[in-house]
């Protein structure tokens, strides 16, 4: 069986909102180390994954490895019935075909329970090579969202150039062009609610062209984290990571575009 109590429903709500437009259904893999997920969109262009470590739940109990097939649209609708500050208890009894979600209000005076039907999903796992990236950019997630939204008004793709100076986002379209340069700032304030600066850690400069349609989908994870890490190497898929507090992360992979 699985029983996992998450102190804040808002975390699960935000995670589901940040993948439901990319992936319609997927298996949630549960083990004694936590709950994880990995799935690609239908066109095999973007891969979404997340991990919530067992220590982010209190308590957490998972007796054996489970693969629970979830339809995101259903889960999203059910999670809308939870208050942001509700406690969520995720419960699965062995050999059942449902997953139970219990929402408890902060004062414990309102307890609601919803069951979601599980699907039998035959998913193929991609093995992602464990690699060192040539360039690691860390920047404000809301700034990243703003840049992706702004450049979408110009073109369908963005060129990300990372140098020691900083990171530049450029787009070109039929009606003109636009760019935003974020200079590297002295220090990143990830503590409290300070403004998150931009840092670039690099072995060599990287330049990649990426689809803004997908990037705009990834920015749906921005409410989970003040910052986003953009890990890049020339010619290979980029990894975007939004940390979920200190209990996990959500990652997106997207291959660069090439000119034929």
């Amino acid at each position: 069986m699985l029983e996992a109590r998450l102190p804040q429903a808002s975390i699960l709500k935000k995670i589901v909102e940040s993948v439901k437009d990319l992936v319609s259904q997927a298996n949630f893999d549960c083990s004694d180390s936590g709950i994880s997920f990995q799935a690609m969109d239908e066109s095999n262009i973007a891969l979404s994954s997340f991990l919530l470590r067992a220590d982010g739940f209190d308590p957490y109990r998972c007796d054996r490895n489970l693969s629970l097939g979830i339809k995101f649209a259903s889960l999203s609708k059910i999670l809308k019935c939870a208050g942001n500050d509700d406690v969520v208890i995720i419960r699965y009894m062995d050999d059942a075909d449902i997953l139970s979600l219990v929402f408890e209000s902060p004062n414990n005076e309102r307890i609601s329970e919803f069951d979601i039907k599980l699907l039998d999903i035959d998913s193929e796992y991609l093995s992602i090579p464990d690699q060192e990236f040539e360039c690691k950019v860390k920047m404000s997630s809301s700034e990243f969202s703003r840049i992706c939204r702004d450049l979408m008004t110009i073109g369908a793709s963005v060129v990300i150039d990372a140098t020691k100076e900083g990171v530049k986002f450029s787009a070109t379209g039929d009606d003109g062009s636009g760019s935003v340069l974020l200079k590297q700032s002295g220090s990143i304030d990830n503590e409290g609610r300070g403004v998150v600066g931009t840092s670039v850690e690099m072995v060599e400069p990287v330049s990649l062209e990426l689809s803004l349609k997908y990037l705009n989908n990834f920015t749906k994870a921005a409410p989970l984290s003040d910052s986003v890490a953009i890990n890049m190497s020339n010619g290979i898929p980029v990894m975007f990571q939004f940390d979920v507090g200190d209990i996990g992360y959500i990652r997106y992979f997207l291959a660069p575009q090439i000119k034929d």
Binding site: S43, N44, P129, L254, A255
Partner: peptide, 14 residues
């Protein structure tokens, strides 16, 4: 012409 590469050409199925 711009071509979007699939992830399948980078990440293998085990």
């Amino acid at each position: 012409k711009i071509h979007q590469q699939s992830l399948l050409s980078f990440f293998g199925t085990p």
